[in-house]
Amino acid sequence: MREYRKHASTRAVPVIVLSSKEDPATKGEAFAAGANDYLVKLPDRIELIARIRYHTRAYLDHVQRDSAHRALRESQRQLISANLELERLTRIDGLTGLGNRRYFDEYLAAEWKRAFRAQSPLSLLMIDADNFKRYNDTYGHMAGDDVLKQIARVIQSGSGRSTDLAARYGGEEFVIVLVDTILEQSSAIAERLVQSVRELNIPHGPDRVTISVGVATAVPTENETPNDFVNAADLALFRAKSEGRNRVALHMSRS
């Protein structure tokens, strides 16, 4: 009996002990070792078959319940995994693998509130691929999509902390949210991004593909909103493009 209960393959198999001993100590030892039933001497045929059937049904019910529980746990695991993947996909831009516009809006709103409570600086980089429509018209949309993917990889590398978010804002525009980051730090990151995209050396007519970046830094106040913050970064981006593109322009809402 003890050997049976040591092994996984026989641990749950029902066992009826047939014994010539009526001694309670012996009977108790048998049950302690794992017996399901204990019969003194050989009972009549009807009783023995009835007991075998009873324990067999109980064992099969146990096996079926165990199998059903395993199947239910596996189904729950797959459902959780599917829900997590679905949630991830709702936040990801399909082309670039960065966060999408919806996720950016949610993330910025949450970080704006956090920065307001902590009175800590928040920086935003608004990034645009220069003359991208002309690139698409010249090389085709498939080539344009490939360029966006390459730019996205550079942008992702510029938001290396787990608290930062890089996202596709729309079309050829991207954004990076940098938490607890002052203007000098965010502008340095922006300069590295501009340089890294130049170093991709992607032909664009007589020149190569470049980006312009607008940088805004703010410590949120009651009178400002995340939209004001985005507009500030967008104005800085507009100035970078109007001053010749392939550069960084700064805007600071409040220090």
Rank of each mutant, 00 (worst) to 15 (best):
S186W: 00
D23N: 08
K21E: 15
R153M: 14
I211M: 02
Y135F: 09
E222P: 13
R57F: 11
V213A: 01
A167S: 04
L60M: 10
K113D: 11
Y135E: 02
L72A: 07
P226S: 04
H62F: 15
A33M: 09
P24H: 00
N36P: 09
D146H: 12
S162T: 15
Y38N: 06
V40D: 01
K41A: 09
T163K: 10
P14T: 00
V179R: 07
K241C: 01
D234S: 04
S120D: 08
I92P: 08
A58P: 14
S123I: 07
A68C: 10
L125A: 00
R57L: 11
G99Q: 07
L86P: 07
R208P: 15
V213L: 00
R102W: 08
L108E: 00
L165S: 01
L39D: 02
A236I: 04
V154Q: 03
A236S: 03
I16E: 01
S75N: 10
R239V: 13
L98M: 04
I202Q: 04
L84K: 10
D180S: 10
R102G: 09
E199D: 11
A58H: 12
T217C: 03
R70N: 10
D61V: 14
Y54Q: 13
Y38Q: 05
L79A: 06
V248C: 03
N36E: 08
Q195A: 13
T210N: 02
N83R: 09
A218N: 05
L165C: 08
F174N: 05
R192W: 09
A216K: 02
V248T: 03
A233C: 05
L125M: 05
A233D: 00
G94C: 08
H55W: 07
Y135N: 05
A152C: 06
T217V: 02
I80R: 14
Y103F: 11
A25W: 12
G99C: 01
D130Y: 07
D37R: 09
L183R: 11
L72F: 09
S9A: 13
R53V: 13
H7D: 12
Q195L: 15
S255D: 13
P220S: 06
V13C: 03
D146Q: 13
V219Q: 06
E3K: 14
M1C: 10
L165Q: 07
S20Q: 11
V197C: 02
F174P: 08
R245Q: 02
F31I: 02
T56D: 08
A167K: 04
A8W: 14
V230C: 04
G214N: 00
N201E: 14
T163L: 11
V230W: 05
P43A: 06
E29D: 15
P220V: 06
R102N: 09
E222D: 15
V15G: 07
K149S: 12
G34S: 02
